[in-house]
């Protein structure tokens, strides 16, 4: 019983001497002492402060993590709701918008591609700083800078839903260009969409059209005039979802609320 205290040097001198004497004639105690002795090398590698830190992790972080995961769930629900009630959610769509300054339609599809490992490498802690304090889904999604800011929308999809390679479909009409990367998601299809050449303030709706003429709303958004200098056309990226499976869809139509066709993107 005194072996542990002896090993840690906590026994008074006379008792320590007794333990030593005992171990000379007791192989069992000697063996046990040797077995435990290796622990002191490990104990010496940490400080009392280290142990206290481990024992009292920063609980504020837990709260923020739970809030962040809840926000992510809300975002997912919002995306589903958007698909279900297309046309009525232009305001909600504005929160999802990732309007970009110039024609750079590939951006969304490129951002959709990174695997888990590249994402780990690219985002710094400053990306995180934006998240905890931001309120509502707009703050969580609105891109504010470099390439590491773009993936949040795309990364809402779990990697296991990415059954098809991310090959964008494109369509052009009178200066308007749209790209769609469809990703099978459950029974339906999630769409990473970018569109350029549409003047600001334009509201767009996206419809997935099946071979039999069935149309399914896949999202709507508005190009926010406040974000961009007058007179420029913008490229916007957003995520849509339709209940139609990708193999049923023959094309995607982008229309204004009045029904005017902006551009059509054929499916392969």
């Amino acid at each position: 019983m005194s072996l542990g205290a002896h090993m840690l040097g906590a026994l008074e001198a006379d008792e320590a001497a007794r333990v030593e004497t005992h171990m000379e004639t007791c192989p069992e105690c000697r063996a046990e002492f040797e077995e435990l002795r290796g622990l002191t090398a490990l104990l010496s590698r940490v400080s009392e402060e280290d142990i206290e830190q481990v024992a009292s992790p920063p609980t504020a972080v837990l709260d923020r993590l739970i809030a962040a995961s809840a926000r992510r769930r809300r975002v997912n629900r919002l995306l589903m709701g958007l698909a279900a009630t297309v046309g009525a959610v232009v305001v909600g769509g504005a929160a999802l918008m990732a309007v970009q300054d110039s024609g750079e339609p590939q951006r969304t599809t490129a951002a959709n591609a990174p695997s888990v490992s590249t994402e780990v490498d690219q985002a710094g802690p400053q990306a995180l700083k934006n998240a905890p304090g931001s309120s509502g889904s707009g703050g969580a999604l609105a891109p504010s800078g470099g390439p590491s800011e773009a993936p949040p929308v795309a990364s809402e999809q779990r990697a296991d839903t990415l059954v098809a390679p991310a090959v964008p479909l494109t369509g052009r009409k009178a200066g308007v260009e749209a790209r769609i990367t469809p990703v099978q998601s459950g029974g339906g299809t999630s769409l990473n969409i970018s569109i350029s050449g549409v003047s600001q303030g334009t509201s767009c709706r996206v419809f997935a059209v099946a071979a039999d003429g069935t149309e399914s709303g896949a999202g709507s958004w508005t190009i926010d005039p406040a974000d961009y200098p007058r007179g420029r056309t913008a490229s916007a990226s957003f995520v849509g979802h339709t209940d139609l499976s990708i193999d049923r869809i023959i094309r995607f139509d982008f229309r204004t609320p009045a029904g005017r066709l902006l551009v059509s993107v054929p499916n392969r």
Partner: peptide, 10 residues
């Protein structure tokens, strides 16, 4: 704290 949060979130 920020780094721990981001790491665990990933």
């Amino acid at each position: 704290e920020d780094v721990v949060q981001e790491t665990l979130l990933r």
